[in-house]
Design a protein around this nucleic acid. Structure first.
Length: 359
DNA sequence: AATGCGGGGTT
DNA sequence: AACCCAGCATT
């Protein structure tokens, strides 16, 4: 029977854990608090460049509480999530007035703006050495794997299970080192992509390790229904029946391929035609729209056909345009949905993607 | 319960 | 180019 979970984690941390991050030197509740706020959804390496500068300017809670908010935001700029800085400043003022400093209990801490359950636990455990639990991304990952907890942690039920486990496993003594150890375990061994289970102190009874499910846990956020974008593709024909093609930018969707000019809406078709060919067709004919699926989104294509009358079309503006006669060898690669559109403009939808015609 | 916040790293 | 990161507040 292996040792208690927390004992193994702590023993590992004493040998391999991180102990000299900026906020671990002189870990006062105030410094722990500031670091925890900076570290919300922000990686350690990023925060390292900000923490000491911030502490030099605002060495204690009173310095922060009495500073202008703009100065706080100034030292935050580049970190992102600027509401964190505003909340930090407000919380400093509230704590200063209401408690004469940072409170030292879970409820009062979590009542301050920007401090939730996990950050409050971190301040107590890391800053006061009191028994309290944290549940950040690292701990979620370690616990979900070790206990084999299925489901996305964003789901309330899963989150509740994880919190229950987190508290159940927090030792009465050394909660601070334990919290740090769990984060270090998640950050250095039990990483998202390539966990080093061979070095893990709790691999012996890890469900994910036993079942080879490290890659599946914790479950990722369910993918949203692939977003749908739409575009209007212009079939601009000249008097000879050639259609104008445009070479797409080298990178991005259909990079470097020859495709139809596009407009962001039917209303912009005329303006695009003027840009491209110097004039506009008398009328546009709307062909049946259809969908094309990419990995990350679906594109709803509205073909618009128009014939340019009068003398032969003006010469192409640059090498990124060509008048292409359907049936001739193409100037280069053509995206499949565009190719089918060129072959059978009126039937493109039917031949390309029958089920996607509607809506 | 779902979404916005945000710049940066990883894959 | 998603996806994620020492989460929390808001809706």
């Amino acid at each position: 029977m292996p040792q208690r979970f927390s004992e193994r984690v702590l023993a590992w941390w004493r040998r391999h854990g991180r102990k000299d991050l900026p906020w671990q030197r002189e870990p006062t509740p105030y410094r722990v608090w500031v670091s925890e706020i900076m570290l919300q959804q922000t990686q350690v390496g990023t925060v390292v460049g900000y923490f000491d500068r911030f502490m030099a300017r605002f060495p204690d809670l009173e310095a922060l509480a009495t500073a202008p908010v703009d100065e706080v935001l100034g030292l935050w700029s580049g970190l992102g999530y600027y509401a964190r800085a505003r909340n930090l400043h407000r919380a400093a003022q509230e704590a200063h007035v209401l408690h004469g400093g940072l409170p030292a209990d879970l409820e009062a801490l979590a009542a301050l703006p920007g401090i939730g359950r996990s950050t409050a636990g971190a301040i107590l455990a890391l800053g006061h050495g009191r028994p309290a639990s944290i549940l950040d991304g690292n701990v979620k990952r370690v616990l979900a794997r070790h206990a084999g907890i299925d489901g996305w942690p964003g789901e309330t039920a899963v989150l509740h299970r994880l919190w229950a486990l987190a508290e159940e496993r927090t030792p009465e003594h050394e909660a601070g080192p334990y919290a740090q150890a769990m984060m270090d375990l998640g950050a250095t061994l039990c990483t998202r992509a390539n966990p080093c289970c061979g070095d893990c102190p709790v691999a012996a009874d890890c469900v994910a390790q036993r079942e080879g499910r490290q890659r599946e846990l914790p479950a990722p956020k369910p993918r949203k229904t692939t977003p749908e974008r739409e575009t209007w593709m212009l079939l601009l024909y000249d008097a000879a029946g050639a259609v104008l093609l445009e070479r797409r930018p080298p990178s991005g969707i259909w990079g470097g391929l020859w495709s139809l000019p596009e407009a962001a809406s039917a209303d912009e078709a005329d303006a695009r035609a003027r840009e491209l060919a110097g004039r506009t067709p008398a009328t546009w004919q709307a062909l049946p729209p259809f969908r094309h699926a990419f990995t990350h989104f679906r594109l709803r294509i509205h073909p618009l056909a128009g014939r340019l009358h009068g003398p032969a079309a003006v010469g192409v503006k640059d090498t990124a345009q060509v008048w292409y006669k359907p049936g001739q060898p193409p100037p280069g690669g053509i995206p499949a949905p565009v190719a089918s559109l060129l072959e059978q403009p009126a039937r493109a939808a039917a031949t390309n993607d029958r089920e996607d015609i509607s809506q």
